[in-house]
Design a protein around this nucleic acid. Structure first.
Length: 422
RNA sequence: GUGGCCGUAGCUCAGCUGGUUAGAGCACCAGGUUGUGGUCCUGGGGGUCGCGGGUUCGAAUCCCGUCGGUCACCCCA
């Protein structure tokens, strides 16, 4: 039996686990600060949900899904993302929900691809969605939330890229124009990009190999082909960001692979010099076409999906300290077997009653070893309890930072520690 | 899913062109007179050299496969 976890998954422990936990905490706190309510949708959904929303020729569907048959013979899929699930849940419960719906989720997602740093088969995302508002202020709110999250986590080296990809009014015409534009250059495109040209010409812009070629850089962008309403919407989003003090860069080449995305598209990208491929840690936009694809009434929506694992990479690259605030305040050391051990157990209990995080050794180990444990536990104090102390009803309180010791009545220990403050 | 590089103790790595009982630093544990951590000294535990097969008198060192990591591409968080 191998102890290795399956490929593309990871065991997260100690400092890394604390770091992740802090990210979960900030996800909840930030979303709630904006009045978003938590939602928990299934970890797996009917495969059809993703096939319909992503299209059966998309990469996600053709090679990245964890799909299997359940015992009733239905095809189910581990969620590769959550927007589809949230919108599905919205449609299922729309009658019970006050409008607009502001909701957020935190959880694990699954995609079967070749793993590398920042691209795992099991990964964690924090996402927010505003469903039911078509206007630009919803877009701004989502962007402001994402910005606040990034700053809250202490990262500074990033850029917010922003674009509008139009809607059903203006995109088709632009798409045709772009196809015509690329036509003469078709033999200068590699195989990948030709496929993109046929399926979705906007995606030629993200081509890694050809994307930098002059004729691609010179191609018309959608910015000045937006229809009136899209242009107005985009202008309002930009004005809103400026008013909120959120810095962004216009990126006319930022696109989306799927057709239900409309208007606003954005990505937060780590600009740290050590950043590699997976530099995008948060991406989102407007998806006004999604509900209809699922067979529901036209319902506008906007949101983002933030990669918590990628966020951790970005934080590490920038040297943001992993919040390793250890809880233990006082480590109670029992010297010798018998009475001291029982007394230590009771003392720890008293400290906990008083709200002082405390722990002790579960085995009789040398005093030396127990002090070492206190050190490893990150405790500020060690309370030593041996024959001498037991006889006098006191403990020896040792401040671990400088070795300063004092004698405290056992019953007064909790009060003494609380008086020490943090 | 495609391709390049890599895989030696918990971690970071050494081990020349194949040659006997595989090493270091850090970490961990224990001692340094029987009650004092984090420094120092001494000692100790811990490795099927990712796994499987092959070549060879002999392989951690060569070959093949496989698993895993990493990087690029596809795609994306």
């Amino acid at each position: 039996m191998s102890f290795q976890p399956p490929r593309g998954t990871q065991d997260i422990l100690l400092d890394e686990a604390d770091q992740l936990l802090a990210l979960y905490d900030v996800s909840h706190a930030t979303a709630r600060l904006f009045g978003f309510r938590y939602v928990e949708t299934p970890t797996f959904e009917h495969t059809e949900l993703y096939v319909r929303t992503s299209g059966d020729t998309s990469d996600v569907v053709t090679k990245e899904m964890y799909t299997f048959q359940d015992k009733g013979g239905r095809s189910v899929t581990l969620r590769p993302e959550s927007t589809a699930g949230v919108v599905r849940a919205y449609l299922a419960h729309a009658h019970d929900l006050p409008t607009p719906v502001k909701t957020y989720y935190v959880g694990r997602h699954f995609r079967h691809g070749r793993p590398q740093a920042g691209r795992l088969r099991e990964f964690r995302q924090f996402g927010v969605e505003i469903v039911g508002v078509a206007g630009p202020e919803a877009d701004v709110e989502v962007l402001v939330l994402g910005e606040r999250f990034a700053r809250e986590r202490g990262i500074r080296e990033y850029a917010l890229h922003l674009n509008s990809i139009g809607d059903g009014q203006c995109r088709p015409a632009y798409r045709e124009e772009l196809t015509r534009y690329f036509e003469p250059y078709i033999d200068q495109l590699d195989e990948d990009c030709r496929v993109r040209l046929a399926k979705n010409p906007l995606r030629v812009f993200d081509c890694k190999v050809d994307g930098r070629k002059d004729f691609v850089l010179a191609a018309p962008t959608i910015a000045d082909r937006l229809c009136g309403p899209c242009s107005e919407h985009f202008g309002a989003v930009r004005a809103g960001l400026e008013d909120a003090g959120v810095r962004y860069e216009l990126d006319p080449r930022l696109v989306r692979g799927l057709d239900y995305y409309t208007r606003t598209a954005f990505e937060w990208i780590s600009t740290n010099e050590a950043s590699v491929q997976a530099a995008t840690f948060n991406a989102g936009g407007r998806y006004d076409g999604l509900a209809e694809i699922l067979g529901g009434p036209a319902t506008p929506g906007v949101g983002f999906a933030l990669g918590l694992d990628r966020m951790r990479l970005a934080m590490d690259r920038e040297g943001v300290p992993r919040a390793a605030a250890r809880a233990t305040r006082c480590f109670v050391v029992a010297v010798g077997e018998g009475d001291a051990r029982a007394a230590a157990r009771r003392l720890v209990d008293e400290l906990r009653d008083a709200g002082v995080p405390a722990e002790r050794s579960y085995e009789d180990r040398p005093l030396k070893a127990q002090l070492k444990m206190a050190d490893h536990a990150g405790a500020a104090f060690a309370a030593i309890l041996g024959e001498r102390e037991l006889a006098d009803g006191v403990v020896t309180l040792r401040r671990l930072a400088d070795g300063e010791q004092e004698t405290v009545a056992a019953g007064a220990l909790a009060a003494r520690l609380l008086q020490e403050g943090r």
